[in-house]
Design a protein around this nucleic acid. Structure first.
Length: 260
DNA sequence: ATGACTTGGGTGCCAAGA
């Protein structure tokens, strides 16, 4: 089962690029971030025409996440637990079942947090504390599960072409990275790093200042696997070339192949 | 050191992104 994550930076602006990617990559499941659409306006037909079931958790203008799957989406939950006052649509999860069993799939769009320090950074750290709580509960289930999405975290210096440029940024501050590693160290496997070592692997390139042409990228889209899911991993890749296409998102897809 | 792109809506500019 191929499970992908893709921050599409606006569903309306990405319909053609997204349709092309779906036709080629053929993920069985995908979590999408930054749909920037309310649920009622989400163009589900481009997915349904290709045999996907769709669940969205959107809001007006900003954020918004979705999950699509060629199999049924069961037990859909919208919103990250822990703060009933949080109105930002950044979390969705559902259970999908393949030929060899079920897996819980969580899609997330972690807050950017800039400028730091400030209220946006406080929100990021608070959100990550809630993520840690949900992560602990997932591990306690002792079943195949994953948390995939735009984490807005550069885990290590090798995950940025120019780490010095990010020293004061909310994506790379020690406190941000520590919060990410606290979640990871609960017992998750970071799928990409379990299979690919070394620098030069990125999932985001800024639209500005020729970042793509200079390969000035960062790796901020991640897939975290529970031990039961990690045992099933067969592959994990970043679809880098997507960034060079017509009207691209500033992120590219990352995906895992699991023997589910 | 600074600039610069792209998106959606609060529209002909603005906030937000990372």
């Amino acid at each position: 089962m191929k499970i992908a994550s893709f921050n599409i930076n606006g569903i309306k602006a990405r319909i053609n690029a997204l349709a092309d990617w779906l036709d080629e990559a053929q993920p069985d499941v995908a979590v999408l971030q930054e749909i920037k659409s309310v649920d009622e306006a989400f163009p589900s037909e481009i997915f349904e025409d290709r045999g996907y079931n769709v669940a969205t958790h959107g809001q007006k203008s900003f954020n918004g996440v979705a999950i699509i799957a060629k199999c049924p989406l069961e037990d859909i939950v919208r919103g990250l637990p822990g703060d009933d006052a949080d109105e930002q649509a950044r979390w969705i999860e559902a259970t999908v079942t393949g030929d060899h069993g079920a897996i819980r799939v969580c899609g997330l769009y972690l807050p950017n947090g800039n400028p730091a320090p400030g209220p946006k950074y406080d929100y990021k750290l608070g959100w990550m504390a809630r993520l840690e709580a949900r992560a602990r509960a997932l591990l306690a289930e002792e079943m195949p599960a994953l948390m995939a999405g735009d984490y807005n975290i550069i885990p290590q210096p090798e995950d940025a072409a120019r780490p010095e440029a990010w020293a004061e940024d909310a994506l790379f501050l020690p406190q941000s990275r520590a919060a990410f590693h606290r979640v990871l160290n609960l017992g998750f496997t970071e799928a990409f790093r379990a299979r690919h070592a070394g620098p030069g692997h990125y999932s985001f390139w800024d639209y500005q200042a020729g970042a793509w042409q200079k390969n000035n990228g960062i790796r901020i889209d991640h897939i975290l696997l529970t031990p039961q899911a990690a045992d099933l991993m067969q592959d994990c890749r970043i679809d880098r070339d997507i960034r060079g296409r017509e009207k691209p998102s500033d992120h590219v897809p990352i995906w895992v192949d699991l023997a589910v």
